[in-house]
Amino acid sequence: MSPYLASLAGGALIGLSVALMLILHGRIAGVSGLVAGLGTDRGERRWVDAAFVAGLVLGPPVVAGLSGAWPAMRIAASLPVLVVAGLLVGFGTRLGSGCTSGHGVAGLARLSPRSIVAVLTFVAAGILTVALVGLGAR
């Protein structure tokens, strides 16, 4: 399969998951919100968060089992950079109420003005960061 076709098909599965989470549970399938909910939600809602996150973690091994190869992962960042990046992603997604799934997939599908602003902001910040890191490495 061409890599772009695989990306489109993978995206469609992600979209189906987000759509069904709304249709079945009435909830936004935003990964940062679901992960944070593991610590803040109570009762059955917390079990739903945990089940979704567990399913998410099972995805790559299932693909590896079916295709015979683990999905490629090339991590260029050093461990200290990953710590800083992780702190920023964790704090930033809570302060901004969402990430690539909640704002990027579910929010854009709903044409939410907040999500459109959030996506434009995090993509612009990401582009600027990659450009500046690239300049520093030169």
């Binding site: 940062s32 990046a85 997604t93 302060l95």
Partner: peptide, 27 residues
């Protein structure tokens, strides 16, 4: 919303990870 999204974008650009892929890749 804007400040949080900007911080998230910086971390995303530094690492190439956002929450979904990072959690899935734990496996």
């Amino acid at each position: 919303l804007i400040g949080g999204s900007a911080l998230f974008g910086i971390g995303w650009g530094l690492s190439g990870f956002c929450p979904g892929p990072a959690v899935a890749a734990l496996s």
